[in-house]
C-alpha cells in the first residue's frame, strides 16, 4: 500500500484501466494455458493410446502385470504387438472397410447414417484360438460410458469385458469398472438360437442364466446404461457376427467333408 502511493497515481477504477487490465490478464492466462496444453499434449495422447491398448488386452485376459511393471507404456505396447494380430473396420453388413481401426472413434461413427458407419474389430491370437474384440459406446447416468467385449470365434460366447466411464458416481455407477462387475460376463452368451439377445443386467440376487449378469445396487441407471449400450452396439455388429458364423459353418462343413473323404 505504502509503496503504491509513491508512484504516479493511476485510477484503478476507471473504464480504460479496467478494459486494459482485463485484456492483459486474459492474454497472459491464454498464453500460459496454451503453452501448458501444447507441452503436455504428447504425454496425454500417449496415456490415452496406452489405455486403449490396455483395455483391449484386458478383455482377452492379457497384460495382467501392467500394475507391477516399471515402464507400463512400453510393456503394454509390446503385449499389444504380440497378441493383437489384426485390426480392421467393418460395415453393418459385416464386410471389411478401409481405414485404421485403432484411431477410429466409435462415438463419431455412431452419429453417422447407418450405411456409412465403420465398426472397429480387433483380432487377438491367444494360443491356437482367435478372439474378436468389439468396441462399445453408450450413455451412463452423468456422461458417456464405453467398453470392449471379446468373443470366442463362435461369435457368441464372451471371453471378457472392460467398461469405463467419464463421470459416474464413485462407489455406485463407477463400480462398472471393477472386476466384481466385469468378471461375471465371461462365459455368457449373446445369442439364443439365431436371435441376438445381448446381455440383461438384472437386480443382484435374482436367478441368473446364460444371458444375465448382476447389476450394481445403487447404480441402477448406470447398470441399465451398460445393458442398453451392449444391446445397441451388438446389434450393429450383428452383420459381422452372422458373416463370421456362416464362414465358420462353411469351414466346419469343409473339414467334415475332408474328414469323410479321408476315411
Amino acid at each position: 500500500m505504502e509503496k503504491n502511493s509513491d508512484k504516479k497515481k493511476i485510477n484503478i477504477n476507471s473504464n480504460i484501466y479496467t478494459i486494459v487490465y482485463s485484456i492483459v490478464i486474459v492474454i497472459i492466462v491464454a498464453v500460459l494455458l496454451t503453452i501448458a496444453s501444447t507441452a503436455l499434449k504428447p504425454a496425454q495422447k500417449l496415456n490415452i493410446k496406452i489405455e486403449k491398448q490396455e483395455n483391449i488386452l484386458k478383455t482377452v485376459g492379457k497384460a495382467k502385470d501392467a500394475g507391477n511393471v516399471k515402464d507400463k507404456a512400453a510393456y503394454i505396447e509390446q503385449e499389444y504387438e504380440k497378441y493383437i494380430v489384426e485390426s480392421y473396420l467393418v460395415g453393418l453388413n459385416g464386410n471389411k472397410k478401409d481405414g485404421d481401426a485403432f484411431t477410429t472413434e466409435l462415438k463419431a461413427e455412431l452419429v453417422k447414417p447407418a450405411a456409412e458407419r465403420s465398426l472397429p474389430i480387433f483380432v487377438c491370437q491367444d494360443g491356437d484360438s482367435l478372439r474378436y474384440v468389439v468396441q462399445l459406446y453408450g450413455k451412463g447416468l452423468w456422461g458417456p460410458i464405453w467398453g470392449y467385449v471379446a468373443f470366442k470365434s463362435d461369435m457368441n460366447t464372451i471371453v471378457g469385458v472392460v467398461f469405463d466411464h467419464e463421470g459416474e458416481t464413485p462407489g455406485l455407477g463407477a463400480e462398472i469398472t471393477t472386476e466384481g462387475f466385469q468378471t461375471p460376463f465371461a462365459g455368457k452368451q449373446i445369442f439364443s438360437g439365431n436371435n441376438l439377445t445381448s446381455i440383461t443386467i438384472q437386480k443382484p440376487g435374482g436367478t441368473s442364466n446364460n444371458h444375465t449378469v448382476d447389476g450394481i445396487s445403487g447404480g441402477t441407471i448406470t447398470s441399465r446404461g451398460v445393458q442398453t449400450m451392449l444391446a445397441d452396439n451388438l446389434k450393429l455388429y450383428n452383420g459381422f457376427f452372422n458373416k463370421m458364423k456362416s464362414e465358420n459353418e462353411n469351414k466346419l462343413i469343409e473339414t467334415n467333408e475332408n474328414n469323410t473323404s479321408d476315411e
Binding site: 494455458l33 501448458a36 503436455l40 504425454a43 496425454q44 496415456n47 467419464e166 463421470g167 464413485p170
Partner: peptide, 20 residues
C-alpha cells in the same frame, strides 16, 4: 485447468478417478 492437465499427463490413473 493447469492441475487437471498435469494430472492427465503424469498421473493418468489418478486423474481418471477424479474425473469431473
Amino acid at each position: 485447468i493447469l492441475v487437471n492437465e498435469i494430472l492427465k499427463a503424469y498421473v493418468y490413473d489418478v486423474s481418471k478417478q477424479l474425473s469431473v
